[in-house]
Amino acid sequence: MTDASSEIDARAAEWALVANGGEPDSGQAQYLEAWLASDPRHRGAFLRAQAGLRLVDRLRPDLVLTRAPTRPRACTPLSRRTMMIGGGGAIAAGLVAVAASVLLRGERFRTGLGEIRRVPLQDGSSATINTDSIVDVKLGRSRRDIDVVQGEAWFNVHPDRLRPFLVRVGDIRVRAVGTAFSVRPLAAGVDVTVTEGIVDAWDVRRPNAKMRIPAGATAMLDGQAEPRAATPLPPPELARRLAWREGLIILNGQTLAQAAEEFNRYNTRRLETGDLATEQTKLVGVFSATDPESFARAVSPMLRATIILRSREIEFSRS
């Protein structure tokens, strides 16, 4: 399979995931139609990716769990899905996500390694919390305060102009009224990605340097300089960045080292790049975040590498 075909299949898989999550909005639909029309191969790849999702749903009904009746302060599984989509050995498997219906007034939520937790908030908002994260929630009469103490989270904010929704990540503040966005602390700063609406973001050390981030854009805030302008993201890239909400890692041009870093966020069995640490081959595919062995088996032929399987690690090697 050529690099071009692999890239088409990966993009088709991303679009299939977007479509599988519900009817695309008008902007996404226009972007999808333009992509389908730009190359005769695109429509066939998209249909194959959709068929792959439907096929696995039929073959593995045991991985679809029915939501149990909600109880205060209880957690119930939402769903787990295993799927094979796209070409070039691209493998995707679903997750166990946890939903909790609780009163969130001064509550702390933790996720373990590889756990993704979906939490409905009392005000009608919701939080999806990524692996190994800590989020504190306090809903008051005049404001809604969220502290991302560790890790990453995505928020779908219920509109309430009388109670601003304020997310704190260290010195970074993100304020929304009714919108959806994610925050993730990185070495370079705090990444804010907006999927719906508009947010205002700033560093408390530079309160006069606020920036506005619109839907479909991302920005990095580090507090050390004037905020850089928000960067628009094509819908497939937006879906790739937020694929963790479905327990997936989507690669579209990342190196082995970058992929290993992402997989190691979710697993105690770590990927070790070994003597392929500087390998620059661009990887493409959709994978389960909690199945590093399937990823390693899928990409090792492309890298002309062998993998050494151990109980606590998977090492890539040229030998």
Rank of each mutant, 00 (worst) to 15 (best):
L59I: 07
E115N: 07
Q150D: 11
G87E: 12
L103K: 15
L113F: 06
N156K: 10
Q280K: 14
G21R: 14
F263P: 00
R73G: 12
L104Q: 15
A180E: 07
A296G: 00
V119Q: 15
R48Q: 11
R205D: 11
A16T: 02
P232N: 11
Q254L: 10
L256F: 06
A45C: 01
P61Q: 13
R168Q: 15
R240L: 12
N130D: 15
N156T: 13
V204C: 03
R108M: 08
R206C: 01
D62V: 01
A127V: 11
D39E: 08
E315Y: 04
R265S: 05
I134C: 12
F155K: 03
E23K: 13
K210F: 04
G21I: 06
T128N: 10
D39Y: 10
E315W: 01
G114N: 01
D171W: 06
L36V: 11
G189E: 01
V148I: 14
M302C: 00
A16K: 04
L309M: 11
R41P: 02
Q280C: 00
Y31K: 07
N267V: 00
F155D: 01
K210V: 12
S79M: 11
A217I: 08
P236G: 03
L17G: 09
P77E: 03
L59C: 04
E115C: 08
T82C: 11
A188E: 14
A259Y: 04
A215C: 04
A90C: 01
A68F: 03
V199Y: 11
R60A: 13
Y31C: 08
I91E: 10
G223F: 13
M84H: 14
R310S: 13
P77H: 04
I198F: 11
A90T: 11
R310C: 03
D62I: 00
A12E: 05
E246Q: 15
G114D: 00
V169N: 13
F46G: 03
F109W: 10
G21Y: 04
